[in-house]
Nucleic acid binder design. Sequence first.
DNA 1: CTATTTGCCTAAAGCCTTTAGGTGGGTGCT
DNA 2: AGCACCCACCTAAAGGCTTTAGGCAAATAG
Lengths: 192, 192
Amino acid sequence: MVRAGLTTERLVQAGAELADEVGFDQVTVSALARRFGVKAASLYSHVKNSHDLKTGIALLALEELADRGAAALAGRAGKDALVALADVYRDYAREHPGRYAAAQLRLDPATAAAGAGVRHAQMTRAVLRGYDLTEPDQTHAVRLLGSVFHGYVSLELGGGFSHSAPDTEQTWSRILDALDALLTNWPPPPAP
Amino acid sequence: MVRAGLTTERLVQAGAELADEVGFDQVTVSALARRFGVKAASLYSHVKNSHDLKTGIALLALEELADRGAAALAGRAGKDALVALADVYRDYAREHPGRYAAAQLRLDPATAAAGAGVRHAQMTRAVLRGYDLTEPDQTHAVRLLGSVFHGYVSLELGGGFSHSAPDTEQTWSRILDALDALLTNWPPPPAP
DNA sequence: CTATTTGCCTAAAGCCTTTAGGTGGGTGCT
DNA sequence: AGCACCCACCTAAAGGCTTTAGGCAAATAG
């Protein structure tokens, strides 16, 4: 009987690959065990339960995304940085749809705080250094960028923009133009 | 033996309520049957299968959302209309998180085309009539608005903005100010 | 007041999750 | 080398959800 050599890390890694292949919600302890040629019960020595496994995949995805973001941001500023970071999210989601879905998993606050979530907010703040925003507008802008990135990527991934001209490539680039223009010229609070 | 009086419609309706209470992914044929005091197998005369039930809930949510949107848009234009439509999405998601999650279900093209999906795009286009955009910028703007609405709402719902000042109410209103300013002053394509 | 429809039931098979307890291969100590 | 221990993986089993097939009884129609 040859041992499969399971570890938590390898399970999470393989779970991420499985997610990209068949979708995050199809990631199951059984399917993962099958992939290792092992009985499902055997995974429970390495993973607390199904939810734990999914959390592990989510944290992995957030980490990978943050790493890519940091690399993309290095040496860039202004619109250049904005576009680079935005493309990181979009490209990652297209290359790894399962992982991206995993990153959307609602984590309990403790887990989220321990993970790479904070790095993401910091990266967006780093992009905003290239524009002239002060608190609290900077926070508003962080949230706007997060919303656009996430919203666009998940709509595009879900096929929300499919079969309609013009193509999504153009839209994406024009949206980034528009965001750049908006950040450059952030409106003051309207007089009540 | 008193009959429960099941119909497809009542099942979908109850499924939507169940989704709001326990989360869309916890909506299960078994749970729904339990709620009607009936065996799970009995539902299969009214609903093809589990996926069919979920699709029904998704279509219901899209319909409800479109109805609310149409009502909100009546008699409004410009920023007024923009804010009204945006609030429809946000309020609906907060009142009916399960239904909102359902509305995000990936539908096959045929089902999507038959449903209220088209009405949503048309409502956004209606809002844009208050601004001076022509094709293809109008399509880009439709997609931008869709991304912001969906992205913001789902991040807020997922707790992405929690426990950090300033509060999300302010951010939401400033984001809408910003979108209004952006649409009013939509940037031309940058020179290559 | 029968006859048909149809609403809900039981039975059963298949798959997933999770816990409990067993066995044997590896590893390290003597 | 021999031995003991540990840990990786196994079998067994209980419980849940999905879905199909076939049956009985309540509602409805002629």
